[in-house]
């Protein structure tokens, strides 16, 4: 991959950029994590960001989400300056390895949470009634053993519409039979599905994914990647994915970048990403070619030295995008 390619992609301004970052810098004490970082991402795309541990990937996401404030720089989402904007006004949702479901709410109410926060302008009494009602429903369900209670009986139109949306999401997530279970009764994959559903239901401007499937087993991880791809493309979600997993980056991402020394280096397309030795694609191909060639046993040790785990500075001079 050439230097020109990388810098060209970085400089290209886009009129319809959903995320626009200029000169972003963040440090902790003497340690500089991000240094004059520039970035643009168009609406409906997923940018997969790779980088070694400690390169500042998560910091970038936390700054966008509003969990931390940058030292200098400007961030915009959908043309809106994020400076000093509280997290609830940003339209940016972050998902990490942990699903972070609300333990006092069942699956249905967890999914409905964001919608309620956006639509509900009623007072504490309504919330209290709903909270009590939910406990009552759960208890009744426990007594009757009924898995799919009637969700719509005697509701006002706004509430009815909300429930329809949540139910559609439950169906899409294949979680309908679990609607009234407590989050603690779900498996790791199911919990992660609820977290995704909850975030997608409010149609956030940007979804930030911080290695969201890293804690799942290989099979569940693949299912989740597929599910996420399907749902996010249906909703045309703009997302920023941070991962160590090459396969995940390739399945979910349609834009690719690498964080190095506090700066983001963009690849212009999938082919350029695959061609960079740093991405590990070539290494992976070589491994499988080697492992599957007749009469040759795969040596697992070969993989542990793969470039994806290597310090980028040791990848060789030809591998370096500047």
């Amino acid at each position: 991959m050439s230097t020109e390619q990388t810098t060209h992609a970085q400089a290209a301004p886009s009129a319809e950029a959903m995320i626009r970052i200029r000169g972003l810098a963040k440090g902790y004490g003497a340690e500089r994590v991000l240094e004059a970082l520039d970035m643009e991402l168009d609406a409906g795309h997923c940018l997969a960001v790779l980088g070694p541990s400690g390169s500042g990937k998560t910091t970038l996401l936390r700054l966008l989400a509003g969990e931390e404030e940058p030292d200098t720089g400007r961030m915009e989402v959908d043309g809106m300056d994020l400076t000093g904007l509280s997290p609830e006004r940003r339209g940016v949702v972050m998902l990490g390895q942990e699903a972070l479901l609300f333990p006092h709410l069942d699956v249905f109410e967890n999914l409905a949470f964001g919608l309620r926060m956006q639509s509900d302008h009623r007072g504490p009494w309504t919330l209290l009634k709903r909270w009590a009602g939910q406990y009552w429903r759960q208890t009744r369900q426990r007594w009757s053993g009924n898995k799919t209670p009637d969700l719509y009986r005697g509701l006002d139109p706004e509430e009815s519409a909300l429930r329809h949306r949540v139910q559609r999401m439950l169906e899409a997530l294949d979680l309908l039979p679990h609607a009234h279970k407590s989050p603690s009764a779900l498996s790791g994959g199911q919990r992660q599905r609820v977290a995704f559903g909850r975030a997608l239901l409010i149609r956030p401007k940007v979804l930030l994914l911080d290695e969201p499937f890293a804690s799942l087993d290989a099979q569940t991880r693949r299912e989740m990647q597929e599910l996420y791809r399907k749902l996010s493309s249906a909703e045309a979600t703009t997302s920023l994915l941070v991962t160590h997993d090459l396969r995940e980056a390739l399945v979910l991402g349609d834009r690719f970048a690498r964080l190095r020394e506090g700066r983001l280096l963009h690849y212009p397309d999938r082919a350029a990403f695959a061609a960079d030795p740093y991405s590990g694609v070539a290494e992976e191909q070589a491994f499988w070619r080697d492992a599957l060639s007749p009469g040759k046993a795969a040596n697992p040790a070969h993989r542990t030295n793969g470039p994806a785990h290597q310090d980028p500075d040791q990848s060789g001079p030809g591998a370096e995008p500047s």
Binding site: R90, V92, M94, F102, H104, G114, R198
Partner: peptide
């Protein structure tokens, strides 16, 4: 968890009524 609730749109009053107090 609170931050997650905020990024899902819960501002101060709703954060207290919907998450902090019930939990």
């Amino acid at each position: 968890l609170l931050f997650q609730a905020r990024s899902l749109g819960a501002y101060r009053r709703k954060l207290w009524l919907g998450v902090v107090l019930p939990m």
